[in-house]
Amino acid sequence: MIAVLAPIVIGLVYVALNSLITEPHRRKFNALMVGGAGAAYLSGGALGPWELVFCAVTTYVAFRGLDSWTFIGIGWLLHTAWDVVHHLKGQPILPFAHGSSFGCAICDPVIAIWCFTGGRSVWTRIGHGERRVSREA
């Protein structure tokens, strides 16, 4: 149970912390994070030259993400698929943590969903809901 809940919480914490970054910096920062995630498996080389192909694809997606939350979300979902492949192959993202790719495959879609909704600050939405004041007075 903790193997599933912890990655969800990590994804939510990621969203909450990123929500503190103002736009357009938030989108650009997340595009960089997707680019970095695309290279995360390079040192392990479990899938040979396919690791380089995946890195090139996510680099392109991250570049497009500089101007598009949709591309950032796509990048996180691509990384999710790569996490699943590495988990099934027995080559986790963190060699010392056997379930790390499994956890990453759960965490990444949480972030992707947020990206597909426009990567809006969760704090602004909460604050907006609390500050509703009638201006008709």
Score class of each variant (00 low, 15 high):
residue 29 F to W: 04
residue 29 F to S: 03
residue 29 F to Q: 02
residue 29 F to T: 09
residue 30 N to P: 02
residue 30 N to C: 07
residue 30 N to T: 07
residue 30 N to Y: 00
residue 30 N to K: 00
residue 31 A to K: 02
residue 31 A to P: 03
residue 31 A to W: 05
residue 32 L to P: 00
residue 32 L to N: 04
residue 33 M to D: 00
residue 33 M to Q: 05
residue 34 V to T: 01
residue 35 G to R: 08
residue 35 G to W: 09
residue 35 G to E: 05
residue 36 G to Q: 02
residue 36 G to Y: 08
residue 37 A to I: 08
residue 37 A to T: 08
residue 37 A to W: 10
residue 37 A to M: 13
residue 37 A to R: 01
residue 38 G to T: 05
residue 38 G to I: 06
residue 38 G to N: 04
residue 38 G to S: 06
residue 39 A to D: 06
residue 39 A to V: 12
residue 39 A to E: 09
residue 39 A to C: 15
residue 39 A to I: 11
residue 40 A to F: 10
residue 41 Y to Q: 03
residue 41 Y to K: 00
residue 41 Y to V: 00
residue 42 L to N: 04
residue 42 L to I: 11
residue 42 L to C: 03
residue 42 L to A: 03
residue 43 S to M: 11
residue 43 S to Y: 11
residue 43 S to L: 10
residue 44 G to W: 09
residue 44 G to Q: 12
residue 44 G to P: 02
residue 44 G to Y: 08
residue 45 G to Y: 04
residue 45 G to N: 05
residue 45 G to C: 06
residue 45 G to F: 03
residue 45 G to W: 06
residue 46 A to W: 06
residue 46 A to R: 00
residue 46 A to F: 05
residue 46 A to Q: 05
residue 46 A to V: 01
residue 46 A to E: 07
residue 47 L to K: 08
residue 47 L to H: 11
residue 47 L to I: 09
residue 47 L to W: 15
residue 48 G to W: 13
residue 48 G to A: 15
residue 48 G to I: 08
residue 49 P to F: 13
residue 49 P to Q: 10
residue 49 P to R: 07
residue 50 W to E: 10
residue 50 W to I: 13
residue 50 W to N: 07
residue 50 W to G: 00
residue 50 W to M: 14
residue 51 E to K: 01
residue 51 E to T: 01
residue 52 L to D: 10
residue 52 L to H: 11
residue 52 L to V: 14
residue 53 V to A: 11
residue 53 V to W: 12
residue 53 V to G: 07
residue 54 F to Q: 03
residue 54 F to I: 13
residue 54 F to K: 09
residue 54 F to T: 02
residue 55 C to W: 15
residue 55 C to Y: 15
residue 55 C to L: 15
residue 56 A to F: 14
residue 56 A to T: 01
residue 56 A to M: 08
residue 56 A to G: 15
residue 56 A to V: 06
residue 56 A to E: 13
residue 57 V to Y: 05
residue 58 T to G: 01
residue 58 T to A: 04
residue 58 T to H: 09
residue 58 T to M: 14
residue 58 T to S: 11
residue 58 T to P: 09
residue 59 T to F: 15
residue 59 T to C: 13
residue 59 T to Y: 10
residue 59 T to K: 00
residue 59 T to I: 13
residue 59 T to A: 15
residue 60 Y to E: 10
